[in-house]
Structures are given as C-alpha cells and as structure tokens.
Amino acid sequence: MSKPLISIVITVYNEEDNIQPLLEATYSALDEIDYEVILIEDGSTDRTVAEVKKYANSRTKLIIFNRNFGQTTALAAGIDMAIGEYIATMDGDLQNDPTDIPVMLKKAMEEEWDVVAGRRANRKDGFVLRKIPSKIANWVIRNTTKVYLKDYGCTLRVYKAEIAQGMGLYGELHRFIPVLAKQQGAKMTEMDVKHHPRIHGESKYGLSRTFKVMSDLILMLFFQKYFQRPIHLFGGIGIISFMIGFLINIYLLILKVMGEDIWGRPIMILGFILVLGGIQFITTGIIAEIIVRTYFESQDKKTYTIKSVYQGVLVPAAGIQ
C-alpha cells in the first residue's frame, strides 16, 4: 500500500450497532482523499469485530486487543500503525462526524498547522452529567497548562504524523493530547465541528472520570514544568520543609536551655517531621534527577526537538543524523 495522505484512527469498544453507519459515513466523507482507516478494537465483548470484518473495505486495518486497555492505549496503537502524512483521530460512537475531516485537513495543509483540534459546536450530551463537568475540566486544564483550547474532550483532531507519533501516550493521557503536542512545539488551532447525539450503545464515561482527569492534570503540570529538572520541585519543597523544621527545633532547643520542659509538645513532633520530610524530598529529587538522566541518555534521547535546519535548503528534522 502506498503512503496515504491521511490515516484515520478510530477507537471502538462495544460499538457493534455503530460499525456499519460509522464505516459507511467515513468512506463517503473521504471518497476524494487518499486515506487509510485504522480501527482499534479495545477488547469488546459484543460483535464489534464481526461487524468490522463484514463492512470494512480494502483501505481499512483492524487492530484487535486481547483485553480492554483503555482509550489512550488504543489511540497510541493506532497512531503507531498509521503511515499517512497526516493522522486524524475520532471516536467510534458516531458522535464525531467524519465529514469534518476533509475540512480540518485542508485547514492544516493550507495554513500550515501542526494540529487542528475539533471544538464541538452545539454539543449533544447531557447537561448535568456531561456538559457541566466538561466545562469545569476544560477551564481548569486551560488555565493551569496555559494551552488555550476550549474543548479538550473532543477526540476529533487532525495532526501532522510526526507530531502525533512523537507525543508518547501512556496511562489515560488522551485528554491532554493538546498539551503533549504543545510540548513538542506544535503550532495548533481549533475549529468548530459537528456533534451528534449517541444513537446506539452507552457512553463509557461518567462523573467518576473527574478524579482521573485531576490526577492526570497533576502529572501533566509536572511534565510541563519539572520533567527535565525534578530537583527544582522536590528540592524546593524539601529545603522549605527542612528549614521550617530546623527553626522549630532551634526554638525548642532555646526553650530547653532556658529550663522549660519541651517533651511531648506537638510542635516538637512537627519539627522532627518537617526535618525528616525535607531530607526525604531532597533525596527524592536527586533520585528523580538520576532517573531522568538515565531515561534520556540510555535511549540517546535529546531534551529538545529540532523541527528543521537550513543548509542552503530546508532539511526536515527527520533527515538529521
């Protein structure tokens, strides 16, 4: 198969009733584009695989997991398998509309964007259980990461392949893909896309994911600010903790010299905890620094990304040896 212009990565999990209309709509929308479709079947327990095999065309790949690994892992597998110059991601529940993909692709190519993110206009989801938590999460993520997109929950996005394949998706970080792309220096924009109500099946998400989002947000903030210098985080906390504990202990020592009984005072216990905690934080920072250096040096990774080099002609980064 020759290298297509775009690879469409679609994650599906227990979507047997959606497969036929999903594939038909996707093939129709991309009829005038050189494309491939990659479906990642994430451990479904229904007839999703059978339906894909029944309706897939010759440009469709099906990746079947032996169990449910989650959306992030499924997206990572599809992106790894993609061979297109651009990669589009979308959900398999028919709420994303594949007719938006050619428009997003055209925008990416003509305006030279690395990422074109979908923004769900007139979102067709429940107000209390879906829209309100989503708005809160979007506001928190936008204002803490300083990556100013309005809709982090929309899976429909178009990327340059080198950006998508360099993001390093692990755990459940698919919600933070724009942040991961921004860390690579991606030039990013957002545009309105269509959104449809779910017709078949059930949503795989609920309020319980709020805690996962907040946990992942802490991780992303660490990646943004301290991934290459963890000692600045742990060392800073450790030094503050140690100094407060040290001052408390000096204060208690003065009281002891003056003849006061200091045994059993809560402040004495606090002083010892802060000193020991400070030492542990500083030690953790040193160990984290060693791990980070091992991570980069053992794989010959760089702490920077070169997009291109001008040597009379523009040389893509991939061609740099």
Results as ranks from 00 to 15, higher is better:
residue 2 S to E: 15
residue 2 S to M: 13
residue 4 P to T: 07
residue 5 L to M: 14
residue 5 L to V: 15
residue 6 I to M: 04
residue 7 S to K: 12
residue 12 V to A: 04
residue 17 D to L: 08
residue 19 I to H: 05
residue 21 P to E: 01
residue 28 S to Y: 06
residue 29 A to K: 06
residue 37 V to M: 11
residue 38 I to R: 15
residue 39 L to D: 11
residue 45 T to P: 15
residue 46 D to P: 14
residue 46 D to A: 06
residue 47 R to A: 03
residue 51 E to D: 01
residue 55 Y to S: 01
residue 56 A to E: 09
residue 58 S to R: 11
residue 59 R to P: 10
residue 60 T to Q: 14
residue 61 K to A: 11
residue 64 I to S: 09
residue 68 N to T: 13
residue 70 G to Y: 02
residue 72 T to M: 04
residue 73 T to L: 02
residue 74 A to Q: 05
residue 77 A to Q: 09
residue 81 M to Y: 05
residue 85 E to V: 01
residue 90 M to K: 11
residue 91 D to I: 06
residue 100 D to F: 06
residue 102 P to H: 04
residue 102 P to A: 00
residue 105 L to H: 11
residue 106 K to I: 00
residue 107 K to Q: 09
residue 107 K to C: 07
residue 111 E to N: 12
residue 111 E to P: 04
residue 116 V to H: 13
residue 119 R to Y: 12
residue 119 R to Q: 10
residue 119 R to C: 13
residue 126 G to P: 09
residue 126 G to T: 09
residue 126 G to A: 09
residue 128 V to N: 15
residue 130 R to P: 06
residue 132 I to E: 14
residue 132 I to M: 15
residue 133 P to K: 09
residue 135 K to R: 08
residue 137 A to H: 10
residue 139 W to P: 04
residue 141 I to F: 14
residue 151 D to R: 02
residue 151 D to N: 11
residue 151 D to L: 05
residue 152 Y to T: 11
residue 155 T to M: 14
residue 159 Y to V: 00
residue 160 K to L: 05
residue 160 K to M: 06
residue 162 E to L: 03
residue 163 I to A: 05
residue 164 A to Y: 15
residue 166 G to L: 05
residue 167 M to A: 01
residue 168 G to M: 09
residue 173 L to C: 05
residue 175 R to C: 01
residue 179 V to D: 04
residue 180 L to R: 11
residue 181 A to F: 02
residue 183 Q to N: 09
residue 185 G to C: 04
residue 186 A to F: 11
residue 189 T to S: 07
residue 191 M to E: 13
residue 193 V to N: 12
residue 194 K to S: 08
residue 199 I to R: 03
residue 202 E to S: 06
residue 208 S to Y: 14
residue 216 D to S: 12
residue 217 L to P: 15
residue 221 L to Q: 07
residue 222 F to M: 03
residue 223 F to R: 10
residue 224 Q to N: 08
residue 227 F to R: 08
residue 230 P to T: 01
residue 235 G to N: 12
residue 244 I to W: 03
residue 244 I to D: 03
residue 245 G to M: 00
residue 247 L to G: 02
residue 248 I to G: 07
residue 251 Y to R: 08
residue 254 I to F: 13
residue 256 K to N: 11
residue 258 M to L: 12
residue 258 M to R: 07
residue 259 G to M: 03
residue 259 G to L: 04
residue 262 I to G: 00
residue 267 I to P: 12
residue 268 M to Y: 08
residue 271 G to N: 06
residue 276 L to S: 07
residue 279 I to W: 02
residue 281 F to H: 10
residue 281 F to C: 10
residue 285 G to C: 01
residue 288 A to E: 09
residue 289 E to K: 11
residue 289 E to R: 12
residue 297 E to C: 01
residue 298 S to W: 14
residue 299 Q to P: 05
residue 299 Q to D: 11
residue 302 K to A: 13
residue 303 T to P: 09
residue 304 Y to R: 06
residue 304 Y to Q: 11
residue 307 K to F: 04
residue 312 G to F: 12
residue 316 P to C: 02
residue 319 G to D: 15
residue 321 Q to S: 08
